[in-house]
Design a protein around this nucleic acid. Structure first.
Lengths: 363, 363
DNA sequence: TTTATTTACGCAACCGTTACCGGAAAACCG
DNA sequence: CGGTTTTCCGGTAACGGTTGCGTAAATAAA
């Protein structure tokens, strides 16, 4: 089956007019008489003419469309971010192509190559598997507008939007300490990711500021970034098999999927939260407030993040040349304290927690 | 900023060759000497030449790319479906463009128009707001391969893939009856949607087969399909304000978002499930097994659905003409019974429920 | 050596659209 | 009425790539 749309050429033949006349009539050019214009426009409407965007792109060398490189559709944080981007671009009259990498470098490279000659600009979140960024650098140096979001790439000087991962982890860890935890574990995604590194840094600083010495055994990274449940499972087992005096009483999970999987693990093995292990984790999953025990989370401003990044890319598309200065927008995550980490039921502690959230949001 | 990629023309100039020679060399044509081929191929690799897909599409009048029209990214069922589609097309060497309609007819029409001249085929799930399908019919009659999934359109004869909504609702209702419920309510999405109508039909049949007379007041539809919480809230309030003898003791929610919102409503208002109201609903949300009470669901085979629909579209793309016969693939949803609807804790009832699920899956 | 055939490449048309340029006819001016 | 200016429209090139065809040189056959 093949789709054969109406072309300007066909209409020109049908109307006994020149091709350029028809084109100009449709563009309401002053060089065309009102009578002819009406004839053309009416006919175009009648046959439901739609200009071929492929031909337009070929000529104009632009698309009014942008590409989004995303890790996984099937991830609430990602879909929320894309939602924010989509609505921003929709307002600006741009169309959006989304390609997922499933955390694979190979797919990422293919996706970027695919998009690079189809779109006017790129919104990229690096796959967790990716080490080298040469392919992006090349593209960027040839003039492709690129904005990084969430998982940024420091090697390439351009706009970027991300969450304050350091502070999110710092405050979450401080909260656990405030709840009386002294042996606090950290399970992250891929060790190679800047995001995870920052979250670890925040975690470490909070412990240091509280004068707690960290055990190496408390810190786990997941080679594949935690795409599969089994990765988190292994990390959890290692943590919980530690001798009694080293076994953690608090846990910060630094990745959405890891948080959900750690929660599942603890529920499946009937480990009580927060009594045996207080859990707080980065997560934008829905329903975390209705699971039992309800789940404390560090929640990123996902839609906002998408909107801001979209704005940066639009700015880049409109500027004639590479700007001299690049912005890095940093959004504060919200710390939402619920049952899974709330050991001290005192009002004061809850109050303190709430006030902290408000403080954070203002920034 | 503008991106200027290397063209075949530029390479021809650089190498002092004809344009067609370069093209043929890259295509390994027998008409080109080995020496020249090597020269061209090496140079192309050196300057990182990528053929312009826009130019290719313009000539070939095809893209090897397909379009997916989706209601909301930010909906687990949808993202699971898209996941299935994406992986099927990736294997077949097709690229995928996804556009969301946010349940708005206007956006849907724009999306379809946008995609129609960019892709070789379309995978469409009708927006809940949409009444007329003329825009799709036109396109279809001009030869655009279209496959409907989930929310199908009966007016247009083509392949389609959907869940057995009737049986899903029938079995879910039967389960509630088996749990002792006699006043079973139904809250659907938009009344106009075939999906919702089928689910209601299944619900009605189950009640009829059990000899239960239905009250009109038990059945609610949501004009906007339940996109916003408030719609479900209003329906729930109406149900729960009914006089004691009419007030429902069981509820079937026939839409993902509605199920989540009904659950939220019941939790917020401290209405006990299943004692005061037994709840089961269509839902593909994650974490429904960890909320408390855990949520009984009719869960669709979302990824499978995506894969099957993708296969149908690929078949259509490969066939020369419109096939005479169209397939309608029907997938059985899984009925997963959990706390929110389980009044009788007897093993026998649980067993019965489980065996029913297995029976259903085999079909 | 002459002719036929192969080899290896370039020219030009085409896909659908826009933009520049050129020109016929009509309108205007003196 | 002749010349100039508008008005209105068509031809053509270009965007980047593929492909049928033509052709010069090299090779093979006679």
């Amino acid at each position: 089956m093949k789709f054969e749309p109406v072309t300007i050429k066909q209409m020109a033949r049908d109307l006994n007019l020149g091709i350029s006349t028809v084109s100009r009539a449709l563009h309401d050019s002053h060089e065309i008489s009102e009578a002819t214009k009406k004839r053309v426009v009416d006919y175009a409407r009648k046959v439901n003419y739609i200009p071929n965007p492929i031909a337009l792109s070929l000529r104009a060398k632009r698309n009014r469309s942008i590409g989004i490189v995303i890790s996984q559709f099937n991830n609430p944080f990602c879909s929320q971010v894309v939602n924010g981007m989509e609505s921003a671009f929709y307002k600006a009259g741009y169309q959006v192509s989304i390609v997922q990498t499933s955390e694979s470098t190979e797919k990422e490279m293919k996706a970027i190559q695919y998009l690079s000659s189809r779109v006017d600009g790129l919104l990229v979140s690096i796959s967790s598997e990716t080490k080298s960024t040469e392919h992006l650098k090349d593209l960027y140096e040839k003039g492709m507008p690129i904005v990084f979001y969430d998982r940024i790439c420091r090697d390439i000087p351009t706009h970027m939007t991300l969450s304050d991962n350091y502070r999110g982890a710092y405050e979450a860890t401080r909260h656990l300490i405030g709840q009386g935890c002294r042996k606090i574990a950290f399970v992250g995604g891929a060790a190679t990711q800047p995001i995870v590194q920052e979250r670890r840094a925040g975690y470490l600083s909070a412990l240091e500021d509280a004068g707690i010495t960290v055990e190496d055994k408390w810190i786990h990274f997941l080679p594949k970034g935690g795409v599969h449940y089994v990765e988190t499972e292994v990390a959890m087992e290692r943590l919980l098999r530690l001798p009694r005096d080293k076994r953690p009483d608090g846990l910060l999970t630094a990745w959405d999927k890891v948080t959900a999987d750690a929660y599942k693990y603890l529920r499946r093995h009937n480990i009580r939260m927060p009594e045996e292990l207080a859990l707080i984790g980065f997560s934008n999953f829905p329903l975390t407030d209705y699971v039992s025990p309800s789940l404390s989370v560090v929640q990123q401003q996902s839609e906002k993040l998408g909107e801001v990044a979209a704005g940066q890319l639009l700015a880049l598309l409109q500027s004639k040349r590479k700007p001299l200065k690049y912005q890095t927008e940093v959004l504060m995550p919200e710390i939402i304290i619920r049952e899974s980490s709330l050991k001290l039921k005192s009002k004061t502690e809850e109050q303190r927690a709430v006030s902290k959230i408000k403080g954070a949001k203002k920034r």
